[in-house]
Amino acid sequence: MPTPPVTGQALSGPASGRAGAAEDDRVTSDLVWDGLAGMSEAEERPARDARWSQMMARAQAGDARAYDALLRECLPLLRAICRRRLSDPAEAEDAVQDTLLTLHRVRATYDPARPFRPWIAAIAERRALDRGRGVARGLSRHTVLEAAEHVGAEGDAERRLDAAELRAAVGELPASQRTALQLTKIEALSLAEASARSGMSMGALKVATHRAIQTLRRKIGKEP
């Protein structure tokens, strides 16, 4: 007998009986997955779950390509979770990034014998919740970024990115501010020394440094 064409209904029956698939995040995933209906047509949920688990297991073993592909595939799910909790799209996107940084740090805690979706969804829920509480803006984000610094020896990704961002912002400062910043903050010279080196007055140095820091703060910290 020829097998009938596979439909969503035909697959979801036996699949929902799969042991361990009845995870405790149904609240999250069902809503979110409804939102991703367009994608799930191409591939059924259980098959994708199994594939995600495998990809994460490979990522734990150091497979960067599997990790990259997995995170990209998970983005719509993460965005859906964060947007459900946060009305501001920029805030939601920040929560998605917080989620990625957190999951990167705790990637050793994933057990490939268990479904991947509840694991990543739980992390996203938590980061979105933190953002929603407003805790994240100051403390958590700082912590996440700071803590993420040690992820990978040559791969200190966040730090490199931060450094690149900072360098770009410093590059855009007026020359006098840049000099002032360089001498007083980076080389940590005293005002008198900095004044001698730059030919700027101590007052001018103070003002320029202050303005430079204000500008950087605005650019890096507050900009959406």
Binding site: G62, A64, L100, A108, P112, A157, E158
Partner: peptide, 15 residues
């Protein structure tokens, strides 16, 4: 961010 995170990914010991 994803590109940066996966670049230089180090293997981890599963907990």
């Amino acid at each position: 961010l994803i590109t940066q995170l996966s670049r230089g990914l180090k293997p981890v010991h599963r907990l």
